[in-house]
Simulated scan of single mutants.
Amino acid sequence: MIEDHLGSSRYLCEDKLTLADVCLFTTLIRFDLAYNVLFKCTKKKIVEYPNIHGYMRDIYQIPEVADTCNFGAIVHGYFRILFPLNPGAIQPIIPSACEHQALLKPHNRASLP
């Protein structure tokens, strides 16, 4: 449903960023790094949803938002600190689609209402 909605709307609720977008972004930025791997939430990764991935890149590119996203700390927190979830403390390599440069690719969402 969100993939379809974001195909015709830049943000979740209005034509401007709202708290709902901030809350979804914090989940999305962690999804491929941790949630999809540890919790087996879905067979697809965020990068496989073009509208959701573009939306995530759009918010990531807002000035100073990227500075709040520490991918190494996310991976470390979920794979090393939350011991019961990962007793072997095996830490995956950060996927290239989740790296800073990949998230700076054009999102072309500014024209959406």
Rank of each mutant, 00 (worst) to 15 (best):
L19I: 11
P50S: 14
I94L: 03
P92G: 03
C13W: 06
R80I: 14
N86R: 03
N70W: 01
S8N: 15
D21K: 00
K44L: 08
C69E: 08
S9C: 13
L19M: 13
T18M: 07
F83W: 15
C13G: 12
L38K: 02
S8Q: 12
I29W: 00
P84A: 14
N108T: 08
A110T: 13
A97T: 09
V47I: 15
E64M: 13
Q91I: 13
S111W: 10
L38C: 05
L28T: 04
S111D: 14
Y55D: 00
A34F: 02
E3H: 08
E3K: 03
Y35F: 12
E14G: 14
P50V: 03
L12C: 12
F39Y: 15
F39I: 13
F79I: 09
T27S: 11
A66Y: 12
E3L: 06
T42A: 14
D21G: 01
I93V: 09
K44F: 06
L12A: 02
Y55I: 00
V22Q: 04
P84L: 04
P87V: 14
H5G: 12
K43M: 12
L6C: 03
V47Y: 05
P95I: 11
D32C: 03
G72I: 06
G88P: 00
P50Y: 08
L82A: 13
P92R: 01
F31S: 04
S8R: 08
Y11M: 01
E14N: 07
K45C: 02
P106N: 10
F31Q: 02
V75R: 11
I90V: 15
L112Q: 07
P50M: 08
L38Y: 03
I81N: 14
T68Q: 03
A73E: 13
D32S: 08
F83Q: 15
P63H: 08
V65M: 05
L38I: 02
T26Q: 10
M56Q: 01
V75S: 11
I93T: 10
Q101S: 14
C23L: 11
T18S: 02
C13F: 10
Q91E: 15
F31M: 06
T18G: 07
T68K: 07
S111V: 11
L112Y: 09
Y35H: 09
R80M: 13
K40F: 14
H5N: 11
Q91F: 04
D4R: 02
A73L: 10
T27R: 10
N36W: 01
F71H: 06
H5K: 13
A73T: 12
I94E: 04
I29N: 01
I93N: 06
A66I: 07
I52H: 00
